[in-house]
Amino acid sequence: MAPHTEQLTRSAVRLRGLTRSFGGRTVLDGIDLDIPAGQFTALLGHSGSGKSTLLRAVAGLDHEVEGSGQLTAPERVSVVFQDSRLLPWRRVLDNVLLGTEGKEAAAKGREALAEVGLKGRERAWPSELSGGEAQRAALARSLVREPELLLADEPFGALDALTRIRMHGLLRELWERHRPSVLLVTHDVDEAVALAERVLVLEEGRIGVDVVIDRERPREEYREVLLGALGVTSDVR
């Protein structure tokens, strides 16, 4: 069984020797990682590299997974999944309010919807939303909880290229305004470099590369390094 997530008053993620395995195959192999409060971190890796396993461990969603190690995460954690995961039988506002209670919550829910550009769609059914709108609603649902840590598991993976660019802008804007710690799992190097302050590459169950992104420097440099770490060489490209 995975150890329980300890609760800290300080909003930061701290992993020590985090190990997870599935049926004898070690997916995470003793990971040490600290994410300072308010930092936007992106986690890159091939599919099957264990990046989702890491995110699920931090989210406390890895029931019945073998593992060991220490893990601390803030109390208020929100997760955005690849699919919007809106309940089809609840209207948009009620979806945003899932798990919250009280009158103030409703006002906050409306505010969050306005913030992601869905003002006026409170009474819509999820099936009436486009893919991008649904993902905005999912972002609003995670915002309402005023998270200290926002976990995002390839949140834009199912969106078309144009919508994805717009969502990048929105996520960055929301992060700048609310300043939660963000852990964004993605396989898109450009997305990671464009959004995050710090990029990690997960390889063979360990964190292979850990770079801080300086916005003054050309992104091209980071792309080369990160693609190299992912085993994509220029002649392959």
Binding site: A59, G60, L61, V77, S78, V79, F81, D83, R85, L87, W89, R90, L98, G99, R141, R145
Partner: peptide, 27 residues
């Protein structure tokens, strides 16, 4: 199962989970 995971993430109690997700989903 994706909705079960969502309920866990959103911190729903067992009763809330049954009332807000399981029963509407089974209707």
């Amino acid at each position: 199962s994706r909705f079960v995971e969502l309920a866990e993430v959103q911190g729903l109690s067992r009763f809330q989970f049954v009332r807000q997700i399981v029963i509407p989903g089974a209707l």
